[in-house]
Simulated scan of single mutants.
Amino acid sequence: MTLWYDEPATMINGPGLSMIIVPGRGGKIVSLRDGDGVEWLLGPPDPLPPPARPGDAFEAAEMCGWDECAPTIDAGRLADGTEVPDHGDLWTATWSVGDGTIMEAAGSSLPYGFRRAVLSTATGLELRYRVTADRELPFLWAAHPQFLAPPGTMIELPAGIERVIDVYPEQGTERRWTAAAAMIDSVPPGTGRKVYLSPADAVGTVALQRPDGRGLRLSWDPARLPYLGLWYDRHAVARADVIAPEPCTGYYDSLAAAVERGQVATVAPDRPLEWSLFLESGRG
Score class of each variant (00 low, 15 high):
residue 5 Y to R: 14
residue 6 D to H: 04
residue 6 D to Y: 02
residue 8 P to I: 15
residue 9 A to W: 05
residue 10 T to C: 09
residue 11 M to I: 13
residue 11 M to R: 12
residue 12 I to M: 10
residue 15 P to G: 01
residue 20 I to N: 07
residue 28 K to M: 13
residue 29 I to V: 15
residue 33 R to T: 14
residue 36 D to F: 09
residue 43 G to K: 05
residue 44 P to Q: 12
residue 46 D to R: 12
residue 48 L to D: 01
residue 49 P to Y: 00
residue 61 A to Q: 01
residue 62 E to W: 04
residue 64 C to M: 11
residue 66 W to N: 04
residue 67 D to V: 11
residue 67 D to A: 09
residue 69 C to R: 07
residue 70 A to D: 01
residue 73 I to S: 03
residue 74 D to C: 10
residue 74 D to S: 11
residue 74 D to H: 09
residue 77 R to W: 02
residue 77 R to G: 00
residue 80 D to Y: 05
residue 80 D to P: 06
residue 86 D to K: 04
residue 88 G to R: 03
residue 88 G to Y: 03
residue 89 D to Y: 00
residue 89 D to Q: 10
residue 90 L to T: 06
residue 90 L to M: 14
residue 92 T to P: 02
residue 92 T to N: 06
residue 93 A to S: 12
residue 97 V to I: 15
residue 101 T to A: 14
residue 103 M to Y: 04
residue 104 E to I: 08
residue 104 E to C: 12
residue 104 E to D: 10
residue 105 A to N: 00
residue 106 A to N: 07
residue 111 P to A: 14
residue 112 Y to I: 13
residue 114 F to Q: 02
residue 114 F to G: 05
residue 116 R to H: 02
residue 117 A to M: 11
residue 121 T to Y: 06
residue 123 T to F: 01
residue 125 L to I: 14
residue 127 L to C: 10
residue 131 V to W: 03
residue 135 R to I: 00
residue 137 L to F: 08
residue 138 P to E: 02
residue 140 L to E: 07
residue 142 A to S: 15
residue 142 A to Q: 09
residue 143 A to C: 11
residue 143 A to Y: 00
residue 146 Q to R: 10
residue 147 F to D: 00
residue 150 P to K: 13
residue 155 I to T: 06
residue 157 L to F: 10
residue 158 P to W: 08
residue 161 I to K: 06
residue 169 P to Q: 09
residue 169 P to A: 15
residue 172 G to P: 06
residue 173 T to L: 00
residue 174 E to V: 14
residue 177 W to C: 12
residue 180 A to G: 10
residue 184 I to L: 14
residue 187 V to N: 01
residue 188 P to M: 09
residue 189 P to V: 15
residue 190 G to L: 10
residue 192 G to P: 03
residue 193 R to K: 11
residue 204 G to L: 11
residue 205 T to F: 03
residue 205 T to E: 15
residue 205 T to R: 11
residue 210 R to W: 03
residue 211 P to Q: 13
residue 211 P to T: 15
residue 213 G to L: 15
residue 217 R to G: 08
residue 218 L to R: 10
residue 225 L to A: 09
residue 227 Y to W: 11
residue 227 Y to Q: 08
residue 232 Y to M: 11
residue 234 R to L: 11
residue 235 H to P: 00
residue 237 V to S: 08
residue 237 V to P: 06
residue 245 P to T: 06
residue 247 P to H: 02
residue 250 G to Y: 05
residue 259 V to R: 05
residue 260 E to Q: 12
residue 262 G to C: 09
residue 263 Q to I: 00
residue 264 V to D: 03
residue 265 A to D: 04
residue 267 V to G: 03
residue 270 D to G: 09
residue 273 L to E: 05
residue 276 S to W: 03
residue 277 L to Y: 08
residue 282 G to Q: 08
